[in-house]
Every structure is written in C-alpha cells, then in structure tokens.
Amino acid sequence: MGSEYAIEADQLRRTYRGRSGWLRPRRTEVEAVRGISFTVPRGELFGLLGPNGAGKTTTIKMLNTLLIPTSGTARVGGHDVVGQTREVRRRIGYVFGGDRGLYERLSGLDNLRYFAELYGVPPRAQKRRIAELLELVSLTGRERERVEGYSRGMRQRLHIARGLLHSPEVLFLDEPSIGVDPVAARELRRTVADLAANGTTVLLTTHYMAEADELCDRIAVIADGRIQALGTPAELRRRADGRRVVEVEAYGVPETAVSALRDLPGVRETAIEERGALQLLTVQSDAHVDVQGEILRELAGVRLGRVNSREPTLEDAYVAIVNAA
C-alpha cells in the first residue's frame, strides 16, 4: 500500500507564463501557487477553502497530474505525480464544478460507458457499476437521454458518477456544488460524506464556508497561493476567539463610512455584502471593546435596518484569515 498518506504535497509552486498582446507580445507571469505543503491521511475528507483565484484549482490539478508543478513535489498513494502518472491516474477520480466536460450529443449512459472503458473498468463489471452509480446520483431512468437536454444539476451528478466509475482511492472534487440548487447541493454533500465514510480519501475545494464546515475533517484555508491556516473546523473557529461581531442591515452605505469604521479602535475586520437592495455590514472587533455605539455614529444619516451583536462563527474566522493574507 506504499505510504500511510493518500496525498502528500511538498512545497508545491506553480507559475503560469503566458503572452498577452498580439503586436507587441509581453510576457506575463502569474504565481498562482506559492509553496503549498500538506498531507492527507487515507480516508480523510480534506478541504481547500479559499476565495476565487486563491489557487485551489491549480493545486488540485498539480495533484491529479493535469499540471506539472513549477517546483516542489507531490505524491498520491505514494506515487509521484510527475514521474508515475499512470499509477496515480489509476487511483484517482476528478470531478469539477460547472457543466462542461461531457459529450453533449451522447446520452448519459454512453458518456459513462465511454469513460468506464477509458478508465479501465473491467468489461464484465461495467454494466453493474454504471447501474449502481446511476442509482447513486439519481439519474436512473434518464440515462438514455442526450446530455444536451440535461439540467445543470443532472450534469453535475453525471460528472460525479463518471469520477467514481473506477472506484478511485482518492477523489478530487473541485467546487462540485457550484451552480447547483440548494436541495441538490445538500444531496451532493451527503454523497460525499458517504464516500468518505466508506474509506475514500476526498480532497474538496470550495469557497462556501458552510460546505467545508459541514463536511471536512480538516480544512486548509488558502489565499494568495499560500496556506493561511490549517486545522479542524473547531480549531479554525478558535481563531476568532476573543472577538465580537456586530451586524448592521443598511441601505446605501458610502465607501468612506466603511473605511472610517475600519480605523475605529478595536475593530479588526469589516465586510459588506449586498443582499438585493439591502447591504449587510459585518464588523468584527475585540470582544472587550464595545464598538456598536461608534458604528451607529459613523452611519448617522444612513437608513438602517436590524442591528445585532453576536458570537463569531467559523465564517467570521475564515473572513479574518483571508483578510489577513
């Protein structure tokens, strides 16, 4: 069985080089991942959590052999991802969010048959395995329709079925719930949890805090191509210990007021989230400083809704970690 770890990443870096401009080509360089190291024991459900552009997809693609790291090494199931690609590919499944990557004009069943063959599922086992997976992702009965007629959720479920065809030891899930409705997302989370419970190692990336919190044994928060924090959800939540959060519903908060709030003594983070006409202003401060009065003074003249003060959640810890990056 080789290594006790399903995934080992050591100082992974990836720089994208490109050219932009046609007439006078300029070289561009993006340092997407800047030295990421972590290990995932067999059977763990490990989360990579971070905002868009943090380098999650790049990290996953280095681990699943689609990208060669600029430097650093990684192993999956004890096999090197650059030198032993076939060994690695035999053991992994890859599912990414979104609705591309399927043969649109073929039926769901044909897609699965093709990939079963390609991924080396023994011919005798194919029929049963495909039927099992169709059942698992609730596509039984729809498998003979062409994928072009599938809804987004159905395509996503077909992606998952495809990723599981060859019963991989390690499953890479890159933002699997993106664009999926809440009910489907909940089902998806249940499927993922079941897989992990049955011994599959799962590496999941997401930018939804709640998803990571609910599913993952451990989470690495990644921003700017680096791991900013790594631990169990409970450990990460403790990052926000000693803080207090004030939430204000408001309409039309000027940018100047937000930056003024950030400079108040005791204030650690501010964030503003648009919810239709409403804006939700979140201010994290040291617990021993009462900033609510100051906040309301800064917002004088702005129409306000509900105001409340609460204990920090994992999401607040996450915001704090990402903002500190």
Partner: peptide, 8 residues
C-alpha cells in the same frame, strides 16, 4: 482533461 486523465 477528462480523457487525458485516463491511465492510458
């Protein structure tokens, strides 16, 4: 990407 991931 999906077809190149095949161990072949």
């Amino acid at each position: 990407e999906m077809i190149m991931l095949a161990p072949r």
